[in-house]
Amino acid sequence: MIKIKAKDVDVFYGKKQALFNISLDIEENQVTALIGPSGCGKSTFLRCLNRMNDVIDICSVKGEILINDFNINDKSCDVVRLREKIGMVFQKPNPFPKTLYENVSYGPTIHGMAQSKQEMDEIVETSLKKAALWEEVKDRLHEPGTGLSGGQQQRLCIARAISVRPEVILMDEPCSALDPIATAQIEELIDELKKEHTIIIVTHSMAQAARVSQNTGFFHLGQLIEHGSTDKIFKNPDNKKTQDYITGRFG
């Protein structure tokens, strides 16, 4: 099943074009990895999928992005509802300067998902459990979220993202600020989450892409050079550039 279908997407920052003609299909309940050298437009593409580029004044997006066959670049698309369905985890953990509980309950509160305190407690608990953080923090839910370690903070951000039960989760280098142990925990988590969510992850680590993803897309200078199953891209890519990048000859 195809969840997201990008068709001829061009992105401009002012006059400068950052993405050229990207067409890419994303499979439901699978992990898709986006790889490529720095500055090639991976984050830009990811931010197209939940219209986060709207926040940047000079940024303009052209082309179609269909999610559940609905074009999110259409005028009739409501970004608030879109972002409720598409969660995002950022490169640097960015917990709000509030308590752990408030961090996780933020989304459900603004979207009116819980009718009672009990329901909210439940949502917070399941989200933290799914993010494999519950055991570590269940006694300190009312302490500030900024007091956690980097890895814990990132898992808190994941819990925050899944608290509204999004269909898709976008992850922009979620492990780049973490040590190997925390990274392993998050990778495990991603494997778990893909049962319920469609996941797109940007990563600079070839090994990570190979470990967690089923599909991979390779970006270079704003172009999508090649995409396909992770196996194929890593073992037997069609394009020479992909081959060079994966074997570490440039980038």
């Binding site: 986060m52 608030v80 972002r83 969660g87 995002m88 709000f96 989304g107 979207h111």
Partner: peptide, 18 residues
């Protein structure tokens, strides 16, 4: 206030005033 906090909130589907 760092932009990353704003991004985090917008990405949750919050409106600007929220």
């Amino acid at each position: 206030v760092p932009q990353s906090l704003r991004d985090g909130s917008y990405a949750m589907g919050a409106t600007k005033s929220e």
